[in-house]
Structures are given as C-alpha cells and as structure tokens.
Amino acid sequence: MTSPAPVIEVSELTKSFAGKIAVNRLSLRVEPGEIYGFLGPNGSGKTTFIRMLCGLLQPDSGRGTCLGHDLFRESHLIKPQIGYLAQKFSLYEDLSVRENLSFMARIYGLPKVRTLVEEAMERLGLARFADQLAGTLSGGWKQRLALAACLLHQPRLLLLDEPTAGVDPKARRDFWDEIYRLSAEGVTALISTHYMDEAERCHRLAYLAYGELLAAGTAAQVVAASGLFTWTITGENVHLLASGLKKRPGIEQVAPFGTTLHVSGHDPDLLQAGLADIDCRLYHCQASAVSLEDVFISLMQNRGGQS
C-alpha cells in the first residue's frame, strides 16, 4: 500500500528579504490529518514559511506543493482550501462578530451564509457575543472568533501562526480540544508555537532557527536524535550553582526550571564527572529524561555559536 499524498511537500524552499535570508533551503513533508508543530526562536522563519504556503509570499527558489497544487503557480487553487490564522488578529475590529463571520463567508463564496454563521457561532460559543464589536472582545475570544472565521469554508489544511500567544491556559486548552477534533475529522494543521507543552501535543514537529530546519520528527525522535544527556539538580538556592557549573568540561548547558537545574551535555561520562563533587547533603542530583526544551536550548546555543 502506498502512503497517501502528503498535504505539504516542499524541498529546498528559499526566501530572502532585501538580501537577508529568512528561510534557507527548507525541505519538509506533512501528512494528511497530522498536527504538525513548528518551533523556533523569534525571527527563525516560521511566519515566512507559513506565509509562503498560503500564497501571501512568493518563494525565491525551490519546489513545493500544498494540497497537491504548485506553490509557485497555483496559489489561487490553494487559497480556497486553506484556513490561515495570522499571528496578529486580522479581522475587522470595527465589525461585530456576526458581521465579520458573514463577511468571510461571502468572500469564500459560501452558500446559506446566515445559517452557516449562526452554526459557527453556536459551535464555538460565540453566540452571546454575536452583536459585539470584535475589537471589544478579550484576547481569548478574539482568537476563537479568528478560528471560527478560518473554519467557515471547511478547509483541508489549517495554517496557524502562533495561535495561542497571549491566550490564557483555559482558552488554550479549549483551542487544542478543537484542533484535536478537527484532526480526527481529517483536517491537517500546521501550528507554530513557543509553548513546549503544545509542542508535545503535536504528532510531529520541526525546529527552525535562522531560517534553517535543525530538527524534525516526533518528539521522541527529536530527543533521541539530539544525542543529549541531562541531569537534574534540586535543592535550596540551586541557581547559585549555575555559573560555576557552566565552566566545567562536559557541561554544555545549564538551564534553570523553577527550583531545579537541568544540566546537559553530549558526553554522559564527562557530564557525570563534572557533577561528581556537588555536595550531596545540600543538593540532589540524578540522571533524567531529556526534555524537548533541553534539546531546543541546545540547538539554539550550538547554532548561535557557529554563526
């Protein structure tokens, strides 16, 4: 049995702005029904990549298809089938919730706009704000309205650019419930985020920095591929140890996580040796599972050291 055609397949996709490379020879494949996480520091090219997928930007070079259509020539065939949620709220603040949704439904040429809009508001709990201006909604509700707007035309692919930035935990949880429900219906989603807990909810993820793809795969694959080992140290004032530890051989990074320190390196023996003389009466050291965040911090540091 051959695997179904990928929803997104790009190779060597490149985009630069005024000589500055934003996305550098990116190759990526997203399967149908997948929730694909997109991580990386600010300015790493996540937004540029998503904008190229939905036809907002023309790539400089490379090849790619989205929903089976060519990215360079067929953006008019791609647009009707995708739902794009921009980083910034991009509906009309001076229109009401209902007016915004009706407008979007008409732009997509959908039939029975009135009932469609009422249903969409009902499903996402927006009905009680129907006549309220979008600009007066709170962050979480704005985001929900934006999601409702980009789901109206039942897109096959969702491109969500930091959809949960500045949204409270409850709203974030509701949002992810909705994404999972859509994913079960066969909708593919590409989501960029800075939150590690969200990264771990994705089926697969990619890590970008400085326009380059540094890691890709499931969370477990990304951790395994990093070749990283981590020890955690807990105890009173554990952060006092941090600066001393950083200078020791074998210890490549020291990252505080609340009251614990994550100490990581690529050589397990050297790492253990580096921690040998820590006072066991004051601190508790143990080898532990490597977290995604440890991997990402390491990727960032290594990449940053090179350039």
């Binding site: 907002l56 921009a86 709220f89 991009s90 509906l91 979007m104 732009i107 707007a149």
Partner: peptide
Amino acid sequence: ERGTMENLLSTPV
C-alpha cells in the same frame, strides 16, 4: 496597517 490585509490576501478574493 491593521493587519486585516493579511487575512484578505489569504482568501480567494
């Protein structure tokens, strides 16, 4: 300026 163009451009309009 308000960012709504980004949304408009991603639609078939």
